[in-house]
Design a protein around this nucleic acid. Structure first.
Length: 495
RNA sequence: GGGUCGUUAGCUCAGCUGGUAGAGCAGCUGACUCUUAAUCAGCGGGCCACAGGUUCGAUCCCUGUACGACCCA
């Protein structure tokens, strides 16, 4: 970008003008009495006469985002977080020196004001400023006041400008933070202990995904950024922690899309002595609690759909879903040739060497997932694609597992954990064979994890919830980049 | 990885089968003590993403590159 544009040069000149007035353009401590949000909440509806009688003084600070000058007075909008409050700068109230300072103000400057609340004759809540403190000079012009900043690339690369120009963006990230706090509170209140496990792992495990590789010089060891914390959290269950959770970043070396960022935030939690059904109930309750606390409702609108979070949510076995959503004959579940024919009739490209489960999984992903708008637990996933899940007692080809879909997207994945070390060893062997055959997403063989299981892991259920996608749902955002402050982009050309 | 579209002033955008660029906001100067997209008068501001090609002449047509968005894998 142009570093020497006209407006920037003019503002650098203004630094001298400020100094000439004895004003430090980059100030220091300023104690406020109120946040603008609080003032608006408290007095947004207080009547004009009432305000005058109560003579409410305040001291607030913020960035000037609008400025309307008259000869000997001016109105400015001060932005504090996602909220704005108008201030009135009037010569005969401010005094000559402060008014002269006010005439040097630019859009984008930070100021602090002392004054009294009143309502203008157009009934807008406003602070009549008695003392003006210059806090910090902005050297770059702000985006346009009416359209704001819309260029998507600039919004992501210079999120600071996006946050200034688009208060709704600020609000999205406040909601994100509150949602994560809400999850922490909920789990802590339910006896879960927050823990931290390695993000740099010698063997990346816990998910089918390609890892980022790195190297530790002093140890001369290859390490991977984790794709999931799962295997470490289960080691903690082996060690005797009954309920643990971790909220932090996972890294997957895969494509970027509206629902994928290379680093993303995951909640995983593990509960000893519970099964996957308990976790479905917990998930319903957790989402309901978050919706009530953050949205004040049991339903939310997402991209034109009304999503009803009222429990219980539908539970639909995986194979049943494939049959139901495509109105297929049940023989496709047993007969590979029939499944292939059905998939091809649906327009799917079936590889010659695909297994029956592979074909059914293809149908599930292509024809079912995106249609699961209302919250739905798909249960009983095939063992073949669930290498860490406990087998069903009634059918060892299936597992005690679910995935939660809302608005056509996977939001959570949970299961009763496989705690049989010998079965787990076999599953790893199968994965290792797939890896040998060229599947870069297949699980790595983790001998230490098996050793841990051999010490005995109590019956346990565990779940992962994609926090970014959950935030998308709660803030009605279509792209994951709009709920991640600094989404991954190709590096910018040097400035 | 493939396809489609985009990149013009600080921001938001125009720009005619190709003749060296416009608006609004923002900025600067002046007027104005209740405005809120303030108003009025005047004035500046451009490597038209980058590199080639075609042409007397390219913001415009062609090729490539970079970055981004969306769709597909």
């Amino acid at each position: 970008m142009d570093e020497s544009n006209e407006q920037r040069a003019q503002r650098i000149h203004k630094l001298d003008a400020l100094k000439a007035m004895g004003v430090q353009p980059y100030g220091t401590r300023f104690e406020t009495t109120h946040r603008v949000e609080r003032l608006l909440a408290a007095h947004g509806a207080t009547a004009k006469d009432d305000l005058e009688q109560r003579a409410i003084d305040c001291r607030i600070a913020g960035r000037i985002v609008a400025l309307r000058r008259f000869g000997k007075a001016a109105f400015a909008s001060l932005q504090d977080g996602a909220h704005r409050l108008q201030v009135y700068l009037k010569k005969d109230v401010l005094g000559d020196d402060a008014f002269r300072l006010s005439q040097e103000l630019d859009l984008g400057d930070w100021i602090g004001v002392d004054g009294r609340l009143f309502r203008t004759k157009t009934d807008e809540l406003t602070v009549e400023v008695r003392a003006l403190t210059f806090l910090s000079k902005g050297l770059r012009p702000l985006p346009e006041k009416w359209h704001g900043l819309t260029d998507i690339e600039t919004r992501y690369r210079q999120r600071y400008v996006d946050l200034i120009a688009n208060p709704n963006v600020h609000a999205v990230f406040e909601t994100r933070s509150r949602l994560i706090s809400g999850i922490r509170n909920y789990l802590t209140e339910h006896g879960f202990l927050e823990v931290e496990t390695p993000m740099m792992q010698p063997i990346p495990g816990g998910a089918t995904a390609r890892p980022f590789a790195t190297h530790h010089n002093a140890l001369n060891a290859n390490l991977y950024l984790r794709v999931a914390p799962e295997l470490y959290l289960k080691r903690l269950i082996v060690g005797g922690f009954q309920r643990v959770f971790e909220i932090n970043r996972n890294f997957r070396n895969e494509g970027i899309s509206t629902i994928h960022n290379p680093e993303f935030t995951m909640l995983e939690f593990y509960q000893a002595y519970a099964d996957y059904r308990d976790l479905m109930a917990l998930t319903e309750d957790l989402f309901g609690t978050l919706a009530r606390d953050l949205l004040g409702a049991g339903t939310l609108e997402y991209q034109g759909d009304v999503i009803d979070l009222t429990p219980p949510w539908r539970r639909l076995p995986y194979f049943e879903a494939v049959v139901e959503y495509n109105a297929l004959d049940r023989n496709v579940l047993e007969d590979r040739a029939a499944a292939t024919a059905a998939a091809r009739r649906l327009g799917l490209d079936v590889p010659e060497d695909a297994s029956l489960v592979g074909i059914l999984n293809l149908m599930f992903e292509e024809t079912v997932e995106h249609r699961l708008t209302q919250p739905t637990f798909i249960t009983d996933y095939p063992t073949e694609i669930s290498p860490l899940s406990r087998r069903k007692d009634t059918d060892p080809r299936l597992t005690d597992r679910f995935e939660l879909f809302i608005a056509g997207r996977e939001l959570a994945n949970g299961f009763s954990e496989l705690n049989d070390p010998l079965d787990q060893r076999q599953r790893f062997e199968t994965q290792a064979a797939q890896r040998e055959a060229g599947d870069e997403e297949a699980h790595y063989f983790d001998e230490d994890f098996l050793r841990a299981l051999e010490y005995g892991m109590p019956p346990t259920a565990g779940e992962g919830i994609g926090i970014d996608r959950l935030v998308m749902l709660f803030t009605n955002q279509a792209s994951i980049r709009d709920v991640i402050l600094f989404p991954q982009l190709r590096p910018e050309k040097p400035l």
